[in-house]
Design a protein around this nucleic acid. Structure first.
Lengths: 348, 348
DNA sequence: TTGTAAGCGTTATCAA
DNA sequence: TTGATAACGCTTACAA
């Protein structure tokens, strides 16, 4: 910051100030900060030195307006507290950072109306791309994004239709896989604790996978409970308790359950805790399995059998696909399936 | 989107398009979208209807440039995966949303150089305010923010000096409080497992509090270990393992430890898991205490004694202070101490 | 209540 | 390699 360079609202010096001080044209200053190589070294150094002296910081808002590009991504997630999301957000953050993009982020609280509102609000800032969680969205949201030709990546699922691009894994197959594991291990009466949020496709897919797999094994359909409860949903963090609650519900529903599959590791760990309190031995009296392979799954005794998802990779992919498409608007970018892994531990 | 309204880079209609179609001036359209009440109802309806028809969405980039305000906040955190941060981020998100602000967020990976780079990059987008985590920052960062007269809130600590505003709690006193609890319970040889990241003031404060409290109780200084390990630090999530590792280090250092205090609940839960694996009874053979009161603290058997921090409130406060200051640049906004609570559970 | 004029600080474009 | 000029789409300030 300096002398006579104060302007209106802010106290920033501008390119014009630097240009005048350095005795070059506005455009030269612009070039120095945007594509330094396109300016002669002597000129560049003079300009940079002047810029430093004036405390100049390029105003990207102005640049955005002039160029029509913002280098900004909008990210929409159901919750900011969900550690699953956190991992994929970190993946996006890491990719975007090295690509010189920033991102704004908002949560919808699992509500489609809120999602629509967020997307609409984000659009006014003209992001270069947008990342959504899941594949189920309101018509308004979809129409808006499509009409604007906004590059969009939907995450965590691989079953379309998609607005534009997608990366994730097959929740249905993953659920079948871990169910098959339980069946192979000899468990016959498998309870399911659903995610405490309604209507998310990826959780519906998991449940469907479980049911189909049990069906093809000739087993009775499972007993399904959900610890759904407004408080839980809003807090989102409170899912250990949800798992404990779910186990109790299952126990009420039928006494002879020998395994419990949970829609997430957090729920499953809650089940393990409840078993410990009840003196139920895992896996002898009850097997437990989760979904996600969060860090705790490996650490909680006796180790939680689960499906490892690749959240970080999903985030990284999403960002990479977006940036690719931004730079090559006509590129056809196919679905990226990051897969999943069955991880067997002591709980089964 | 419509007919002849396609423009340069983007395909958006502009206020000028709407104005022409609706037969009013540009300013009237602007007013309709910014302060609807300042326009006659008939006019307003006509403009809105036209806007809808043209798929008009106000370009806030242009608005920002003209008005010198962005309604954008920059948030800088050490890690996006840390659930402690997640809670306070949610607090900010909730406040900012109702105040019609958006935010961009970036993580520094606990590095001051990265923090400086992030702050510098954010500044180019001219946010209306900035939130930093902690109170220790590089000179460059501090000078930049001060020179720009950027409203800034530092979070999670209450000991200055501050760049501008701050909200948090007294980590030193909180650590003394929970240490006193352990001492009162009769524990005499208290080990400490430090946070696996170096030089963060709030963790240094916690350790200092522990030492001072032990000192005034006339007890031997504690045995301190840190599960520090590059992998842990980078992943940040891997702290359950850090707790287990820390316990083993403590056990090697001295056999007669009867209590362990941890710099975070995650570490403490890792200790509980390790105790379970080793067959160590908690709290009979070893008491365990954490810091944070994450959801798991209440759920893990036998319940974790800990310090409840008010992360959501910290986030909410930070956002509120920022918005207040933005609207009243000369307002003196004092430190907001959200306090802490000792929560005693079965582990002690 | 509505309109006119003058920027806001950059970048695209074309020319030198 | 550098420069002149015209946008970019909106808001502020003032006028009617």
């Amino acid at each position: 910051m300096s002398d006579g360079s104060m302007r209106r609202g802010m106290g920033w010096s501008t390119m014009a100030d630097v240009a005048r001080e350095a005795g070059v044209s506005l455009m030269t200053v612009s070039r120095v900060y945007k594509r330094p190589d396109s300016v002669a070294q002597r000129t560049r150094e003079k300009v940079l030195e002047t810029g430093r002296r004036l405390g100049f910081s390029p105003n990207s808002i102005a640049g955005n307006l002039a160029s029509g590009r913002t280098s900004m991504i909008g990210i929409v997630v159901p919750s900011l507290r969900n550690s699953n999301n956190a991992t994929s957000i970190q993946g996006m953050a890491d990719y975007l950072r090295q690509a010189s993009y920033h991102f704004m982020i908002a949560n919808t609280g699992y509500s489609m109306e809120d999602e629509a509102a967020v997307v609409k609000a984000f659009m006014q800032r003209r992001p270069d791309g947008m990342v959504l969680t899941g594949t189920r969205h309101g018509h308004e949201t979809i129409d808006l994004l499509k009409a604007a030709h906004m590059p969009v990546v939907e995450t965590w699922e691989t079953r379309g239709p998609f607005i534009d691009m997608a990366t994730g894994f097959d929740n249905y197959e993953a659920a079948r896989r871990i169910t098959r594991h339980l069946v192979d291990r000899g468990y016959r009466t498998i309870g399911y604790i659903d995610y405490p949020a309604i209507g998310l496709d990826r959780y519906l897919e998991r449940l469907r996978g479980l049911k189909d797999e049990l069906g093809s094994a000739g087993l009775e359909p499972t007993s399904v409970v959900s610890p759904l409860d407004a408080g839980d949903l809003y807090q989102d963090a409170s899912s250990f308790r949800g798992g404990a609650l779910g186990l109790r519900k299952l126990q009420e529903a039928s006494r002879d359950i020998d395994a419990v599959l949970c829609a997430s590791d957090i729920l499953a760990v809650g089940v393990l805790f409840e078993c410990q309190r009840q003196g139920v031995r895992v896996p002898d009296q009850l097997a437990v399995a989760g979904f996600g392979d969060f860090e705790i799954a490996a650490e909680v005794p006796p180790g939680l059998t689960t499906i490892r998802t690749h959240g970080y990779q999903i985030g990284w992919n999403a960002a990479e696909m977006l940036v690719t498409r931004i730079n090559q608007p006509r590129a056809e970018i196919p679905l990226r399936d990051v897969g999943y892994d069955l991880v067997v531990r002591g709980s089964s």
